[in-house]
Nucleic acid binder design. Structure first.
Lengths: 134, 134
DNA sequence: GCTGACCCTTCCAACAGTTGGAAGGTCAAC
DNA sequence: GTTGACCTTCCAACTGTTGGAAGGGTCAGC
């Protein structure tokens, strides 16, 4: 099948498939007489794998590793788990940063009247040095 | 003062100060005879403002608006609050996405032995269609 | 045989924010 | 006169995805 069909079956845009190929994620797709890429069921399976891994926030580099482990029938599950744990750790850190932002900003927003007058604890909080102290 | 001093006082790297200027955030710092940028206390204050806003995750575009409101002594605090609320909403969405990822991935990790054998629910979850269903 | 619709190809650019480097000018101290 | 600490500009990288341009292939209907 060609790229359009693979895109349809995998849910990954033809555009992105080319990008993933360039990034070295796909087991090299062949070319037909017209230089069109040729895909098989296995490629579609890989694309679905990539799509789900992306949905879980894995960066391309790690998906490359994951695909390697996926293809290696003798991988130790320890490696997969380690990789996943590393990623969860990174996401957790980002989530906590978000939580902290929401906390601080939420407090400022609560304190702000939000009317026609110019007094604004939010702007004050942004201009003063340590305005978020409890 | 020149850019190095402004960087020191504001905590924003000279590099980044130039970028912010190019992005239109700073009220254009003047130039001396040698084309060196000249900064004053006000600029340093603005840079600190920008730094804190960035630390709260505001994108450059919104910081531009915030600075406009900050400078406008007759702004309605309603506008500031609206802007902040919009941002908190965006951050909340991202945080929830992170939380969902952690939930799904955490469940897969728990199920994975993490030993020398190849069986791995994580890889299974990434290859099968709806493996995260409860 | 021609035209139109649609698929495929490649290369370049943009998004956001920050950092890295290169190559050059200026000024003071030694 | 040379070192070194500043300053300047421009170009490029990071990440992932999408947009466009410009070109060729394939197949239908006419």
């Amino acid at each position: 099948m060609r790229i359009g069909q693979a895109a349809l079956l995998s849910g990954v845009s033809a555009r992105l498939i080319r990008y993933y190929e360039g990034a070295g994620l796909l087991s090299p797709a062949g070319r037909d007489a017209n230089e069109y890429r040729v895909f098989d069921e296995r490629n579609v399976h890989e694309l679905r794998f990539i799509k789900r891994a992306r949905a879980l926030g894995f960066p391309i580099k790690q998906i490359e590793e994951l695909l390697g482990l996926w293809r290696d029938k003798k991988r130790p599950s320890r490696k997969v788990r380690g990789l996943a744990e590393r990623h969860v750790q990174a996401v957790t850190t980002r989530m906590q940063a978000h939580r902290a932002i929401i906390k601080v900003l939420g407090r400022l927003i609560e304190a702000c009247k939000g009317d026609d007058r110019p007094d604004c604890p939010i702007l004050d909080g942004l201009s003063l040095s340590d305005a978020h102290k409890r």
